[in-house]
């Protein structure tokens, strides 16, 4: 097996290395990917049609809104899949772990530091979500950081403490809410005569003109993404760390 694997890897690798000879040089501003109409339009027109300085967020949440919506659905389905694969109820979890379960929250220094850190992390995560169209950041990053703050709480103080703030049912409802916010905002555009996820049609109800309506709508869908990512990240951790029993934890 090792031998055949090595042969396959060498053959494929040689072919790909030969193919790199035809690639445009690294950093060449006139490479086909950078010369194309699409990226030029994104760079020059994003600020005209959305008033958002961060092109990546604008393309992510507005121009390619369908893509991001279904990526969020993929994350949701992955989270549901993990719960379906791992979650066990009662004492049917199988063999006990090889490692003794540490008694939770025994170290006062760790607990106090964690309690000081978590609000700051959550505040920064909210800033990242809300300020995503002016600086690096957005729903995915902010959502992961919010989820990581709950994971930190679970690591330092034990899973029950974190579960009191983000229970299993609450996590699933939150994840579904995120997708409903995103898709619902798209449906709201339909009621004002636009296409699905055509944010410019929402300007009668949002402050500012058509461009500002797109900018504000980006914030709404980023919040939806952040809800889903937060809940699913915590659900993934809590199921993996306890083998689906959701007790004690690491």
């Amino acid at each position: 097996m090792k031998f055949f694997g090595f042969i396959a890897v060498v053959v494929v690798g040689t072919l790909l290395l030969v193919a790199t000879g035809d690639f445009p040089g690294w950093g060449n501003p006139h490479s086909p990917a950078s010369e194309g109409q699409v990226s030029g339009f994104y760079i020059e027109q994003t600020v005209n049609v959305t008033k958002v300085p961060n092109m990546v967020t604008a393309v992510l949440a507005d121009f390619r809104g369908y893509d991001t919506m279904f990526e969020t659905v993929v994350i949701f389905i992955a989270g549901i899949g993990i719960i379906a694969v791992l979650r066990t109820f009662g004492d049917t979890a199988g063999k006990a772990s090889d490692y003794p379960e540490p008694d939770e929250g025994s170290d006062i220094i760790v607990r106090s530091t964690c309690h000081l850190m978590v609000p700051l992390i959550q505040l920064f995560a909210l800033y990242v979500v809300a300020h995503g169209h002016h600086s690096p950041g957005g729903g995915f990053q902010g959502g992961v950081m919010l989820g990581a703050s709950y994971i930190l709480l679970a690591l330092a103080c034990g899973l029950p403490v974190a579960k009191r703030r983000m229970g299993e049912r609450k996590a699933i409802v939150l994840a579904a809410t995120g997708i409903i916010i995103y898709a619902g905002w798209g449906v709201a555009c339909l009621f004002f005569g636009g296409n699905f996820l055509d944010y410019a049609s929402l300007d009668p109800v949002l402050p500012g003109d058509k461009e500002m309506a797109r900018s504000h709508s980006m914030l709404v869908v980023e919040i939806g993404v952040a809800f889903t990512v937060t809940a699913i990240m915590f659900a993934i951790y809590s199921n993996l760390a306890t083998r689906g029993r959701l007790e004690k934890g690491l």
Binding site: A33, S34, V38, S39, Y42, I43, M55, V56, V59, L60, R64, D67, T68, E71, F140
Partner: peptide, 11 residues
């Protein structure tokens, strides 16, 4: 920099 690959890879 070209923003399109960044968007695709971020998700």
């Amino acid at each position: 920099a070209n923003p399109l690959p960044h968007v695709l890879m971020l998700t």
